[in-house]
């Protein structure tokens, strides 16, 4: 697999960094070389943050995202800032519950109502898992088995079951979004 760059963005408290680590871990699980970086503010909650994941079957030189193949946007501010940075022919996957999309040439945009699906599950904090799962099901950048396995590993015990439910929800949401 050639180098792929995925950028997950939103604001502090949404679990953006957790999702980044999860994708990186899934990459390792899938036997890929993986680099995962993050940018956030000093505040634990509310400030803009993003996580970048680079996946490749070759050793990774520069480990940060330069120009993403995929942008996963979990807030309007993040969408406004990062959606247009995606490569031509790339994809923007956004939370259709929170983001009003714009027009971007030569980019496929897909909405996933992750926040509302998570709320329906009874825990809006799992929107990140719904979002990432749906995005990976859509792009195929990492095997879903690897992602699920990584999720089980990375989830704290008390959230594991809920996170795995969110994973299933994300799989279903991807199918719905592509229909």
């Amino acid at each position: 697999m050639p180098r792929r760059e995925i950028l997950i963005c939103g604001f502090g408290g949404q679990g953006v960094i957790f999702a980044g680590e999860l994708l990186g871990r899934a990459g390792i699980r899938a036997g890929l070389e993986t680099g995962q970086s993050a940018s956030y503010g000093s505040e634990a909650r509310g400030s803009a943050c993003h996580a970048g994941v680079v996946l490749s079957s070759e050793p990774i030189g520069y480990p940060k995202v330069r120009r993403p193949d995929v942008v996963i946007a979990m807030s309007q501010a993040a969408y406004d800032r990062f959606a247009s940075t995606v490569k031509p022919g790339g994809r923007v996957i956004f939370d259709s519950h929170l983001v009003k999309r714009g027009e971007i040439d030569d980019v496929e945009q897909i909405g996933v109502p992750a926040a509302s699906l998570a709320t329906r599950l009874g825990r809006k904090g799992v929107a990140n898992v719904v979002m990432l799962t749906a995005a990976m099901e859509i792009t195929g950048d990492v095997s879903m088995d690897a992602l699920r396995e990584a999720l089980g590993e990375q989830s704290p015990e008390k959230y594991r079951e809920m996170n795995l439910k969110a994973f299933d929800e994300g799989m279903a949401a991807a199918k719905a979004a592509l229909e």
């Binding site: 960094i17 871990r25 590993e153 989830s155």
Partner: peptide, 15 residues
């Protein structure tokens, strides 16, 4: 078995 190490403590965002 190819075991990504669980990061202990300092885990960002519970979920």
């Amino acid at each position: 078995s190819n075991p990504p190490l669980r990061s202990r403590g300092g885990q960002r965002g519970g979920i």
